[in-house]
């Protein structure tokens, strides 16, 4: 069981790498080094701020685009191209396939993020010529970004398990946008009354909550992140990804592969 999941995961990773997904790193490197050089000439004061803001935002956006576009194709593309037939006619359970795909995609993103993180730290070093203690906060932000990816991956797989690639992309992307304003949604729920309040509160807890995972701007201003928050965010991401992934398994387990 574990071996099969690992094989599916590593095959997913290999496919993604061969599909030139990691080429996005080049675009990232160009963007970041360009910004580092340019901003250094404009202002000394905020160059570090800009590098952190821009670097982390790019890490997060590039990763989300990859997660959505690969994630939605993972299941539906295999159905469309009928590669799934030759996999599921082997002693592979359907849930193993879903979990394996998730691990492979998450692994791809972690590797991608790792290289980008090196880029961010290199750019930081370039602009300030040294590392200070507060730079460790960037690691926290990166960790939160990876948690964000886990949630997006699981959602992309969930949609991919029952919907067409285009619709899945639309769903996943809108949930990303809504999730970024999840706290506003809950605030709005708090101001509503009666049935609306009930409805909006439900929706606010159902959509993924990305606002607590986005600490980029506060970290750029060297605001510390509470250990409690790190711990709770980890739990939250794990619970949410489990939920979406179980949903994907539940749907996929009953799906006729026409």
């Amino acid at each position: 069981m574990k071996a099969r999941i690992a094989h599916i995961a590593s095959n997913t990773f290999r496919e993604a790498v061969r599909d030139r997904v990691l080429y996005n790193l080049i675009a990232f490197a160009v963007l970041l080094s360009g910004a580092a050089i340019l901003v250094g000439q404009i202002s000394i004061e905020i160059e570090k701020l800009v590098v952190i803001n821009l670097g982390l935002t790019a890490v997060s956006l590039f990763g989300i685009v990859i997660a959505i576009f690969i994630g939605i194709g993972l299941v539906s593309k295999e159905i469309e191209k009928r590669t799934l037939y030759t996999v599921l006619s082997r002693p592979v359970r359907r849930w193993e396939f879903i979990v394996g795909k998730f691990c492979g995609l998450a692994g791809t993103l972690v590797v991608n993020t790792f290289f980008m993180a090196i880029g961010v730290f290199a750019a930081l070093f370039y602009v300030s010529h040294k590392f200070v203690r507060a730079d460790a906060l960037v690691l926290v932000a990166l960790y939160f970004i990876v948690l964000e990816f886990l949630i997006i991956c699981s959602l992309a797989l969930l949609f991919s398990s029952f919907s067409s690639p285009l619709l899945s992309a639309v769903f996943a992307f809108s949930l990303f946008v809504i999730g970024s304003f999840a706290e506003d949604l809950r605030g709005f729920a708090g101001m509503a009354h009666g049935f609306t309040r009930w409805l909006v509160t439900g929706a606010a807890y159902l959509v993924p909550n990305f606002s607590a995972l986005n600490v980029i701007s506060s970290i750029a201003h060297e605001q510390p992140v509470a250990a409690q928050l790190i711990w709770h965010n980890t739990l939250y991401a794990l619970f949410y990804a489990t939920m979406a992934l179980s949903g994907a398994v539940l749907i996929f387990e009953h799906r006729n592969l026409k």
Partner: peptide, 22 residues
Amino acid sequence: PEQPYFYDHLTANELLNYYAQL
């Protein structure tokens, strides 16, 4: 399967290895 189609980016060798593992 009818008109089979496989992972584009794998070689025949890699594909068969993958299936043997599964």
